[in-house]
Design a protein around this nucleic acid. Structure first.
Lengths: 187, 187
DNA sequence: ACCTGAACACCGTTCAAGT
DNA sequence: ACCTGAACACCGTTCAAGT
């Protein structure tokens, strides 16, 4: 006993993510992940409790790519950067990204990502008691767009058209935030 | 030969939908669907080409539930009714509904559903050349919310909170439509 | 402590055979 | 024309065994 480990959880998750990015979610089998690590499928169960846990871990990995925007810029601008960032992450991981719609914000990484939006909304002047709802609606719209794009709903639309759509969406959300900021500051 | 058919495509699809609604998407196996119809799994292949085709058919079934709103009401009100309708459909079919994000509008049923939104937007005064983009963005936001709700992203929020969120979302989209209508009519 | 081999129940799909 | 039986490759997961 006391055998040195040949793989760790991080390797398992990054291998699974790479496999999903290249060949789709269906290609992420315990067998395929194990093969890429030079190990038998059963060896994975020492590092993930089952396949659901593995996929949970992979989604968690995605959240780390929502890095916080530069702290100096105004709130509305940081919000726009965050939105572009989310969309770019979706395009990098088209088959895993949609799983984000299945997860409430519970993990540290998820709270971290949400925190970035909260801070931007606060800087933009949205009153504190309005921030949670505004965040939910903005995130929902952005996620809805990004997931639609990478899941195939917009398959028949050009990249040019999608870029234009996304710009309009960001503009609309910007107006929403501005409205929430001014109507809250009035009284 | 010339044997009378014991099942047809419609039965296969409705059985699959019922199974998904009651026990989730994973419960929709060829075996389970066949068992509910009193037939062997292989018998299904005469009516669907494979499992992907079966699921396609089930999603198609969902689109028929987006019935058109009463033709007499004003455009903005019909839009609100459509939105509520979509959300209600999502809640009836929580595990199948998210698949809508994977499908472009190609089938007759899908065009039908989109047509209802087009007509409402036209009545609301949105200029014809703006309608397609406005429809995409509105549908994306509504779908994003509904899928988030039934997929689990809002698991930790009360029904009351979700209803309030949805109302704010509809209000925001209503303002968007009004803006598109007035700014287009000005010149 | 970590990995393997053998085994189990289940899955989608095919193909030839029955009626 | 429609359904069945047998068969195949694959899947996630377990458990006892090896080092």
């Amino acid at each position: 006993m006391g055998r040195p480990p040949r793989i760790d959880r991080g390797e398992v998750l990054t291998t699974a993510l790479a496999l999903a990015d290249e060949h789709g979610l269906d290609a992420v089998t315990m067998g395929a992940v194990a093969a890429h690590l030079g190990v038998t499928p059963m060896a994975l169960y020492r590092h993930v409790t089952n396949k659901a846990d593995l996929l949970d871990g992979v989604v968690e990995l995605l959240l780390t790519e929502f890095d916080p925007p530069p702290r100096g810029r105004p709130g509305l601008e940081r919000l726009a950067m965050l939105a572009r960032n989310v969309r770019a992450t979706a395009r990098r991981h088209p088959s895993v990204f949609p799983l984000l719609l299945q997860r409430p914000v519970t993990t540290a990484e998820a709270w971290n990502a949400r925190g970035g939006v909260y801070a931007a909304l606060e800087d933009a002047g949205v009153p504190g008691d309005r921030i949670p709802q505004v965040e939910r609606l903005i995130s929902t719209a952005i996620l809805g767009f990004a997931v639609s794009e990478v899941s195939g709903r917009f398959r028949n639309h050009s990249r040019r058209q999608l870029d234009a759509d996304f710009d309009v969406l960001r503009g609309l959300l910007g107006q929403f935030v501005t409205f929430e900021a001014t109507s809250g500051a009035a009284p």
